[in-house]
Write a protein that binds this DNA or RNA. Structure first.
Lengths: 126, 126
DNA sequence: AGTTGTACCATTACCACACACGGAACAACT
DNA sequence: AGTTGTTCCGTGTGTGGTAATGGTACAACT
């Protein structure tokens, strides 16, 4: 599994990591059950901060692409291949678009939408 | 119609203006059909920039609280009393809340929601 | 001539956030 | 002892938005 991080790339480092691991799964360069390098190791190899790698791993685990088994290391999720193609956000975030469009056509100012958005984000703290 | 602007108040100046004019309408201190001071005049009286007052007037006109008749001045809207109590945003912005809640319960990160939101705002330029 | 609302150009300060980095600690495994 | 993923503290930089300021100009009214 060759991973290349381009610091010049405007895409955030952790995003590059996520995308490359997903495509590695799709291209069968890593298969379900395979073990992944540890956070600290991968951070060392790529000359990244361990926090950056940890963030990528955390997102990948949420998307059920990888599976961290605590002290036993991290592994490729059984359904990783399917989940790597799914875009969790796509469907749900479409609703955001609808809501925004509705606001705009109703005459609500962009600023007002932004203000309402941030207050909604704060009040929605579960 | 006494209007007081508090520079120390964290509330934006134009918002203070909007709120005070709305409450003046509700309290019948100004009635539908009454003429309002011109943007430049009010800006002078309150020692504000005319742009700030213009912004407040624009918002009040959108909410149908006042009515600018071009060169003939600005007047209190016929249905101002009702419209001063209505919150244009309330209903529409509820959708925003729903969309955000949906995202959060789906496991989408706050940052991801914010990013998707801003990109949605930019792409929705009509 | 003077005023009306409106539109365009611009700058300044402030604040919230994303991103990346660093150090340290934890319990539970090998 | 060493490593695992995780979580907490914090720092710095860059971006982008809001709010407010200023100047100038316009057409159409009184």
């Amino acid at each position: 599994m060759e991973i290349t991080i381009d610091i010049e790339d405007p895409m955030p480092l952790f995003t590059q990591l996520v995308e490359q691991i997903k495509s590695a799964v799709i291209n069968s360069k890593i298969k379900p059950g395979d073990s992944l390098p540890s956070i600290r190791q991968l951070a060392n190899d790529l000359e990244l901060n361990s926090k950056t790698v940890a963030k990528a791993y955390k997102l990948l685990e949420r998307d059920l692409v990888i599976q961290s088994k605590g002290y036993r290391g991290t592994f490729v999720h059984p359904h990783a291949i399917v989940n790597s193609k799914v875009d969790l956000n796509a469907e749900v975030l479409a609703q955001l678009n609808n809501a925004i469009s509705a606001c705009k056509t109703a005459g609500v100012t962009d600023s007002e939408i932004r203000i309402a958005f941030s207050s909604a984000m704060n009040s929605n703290n579960n």
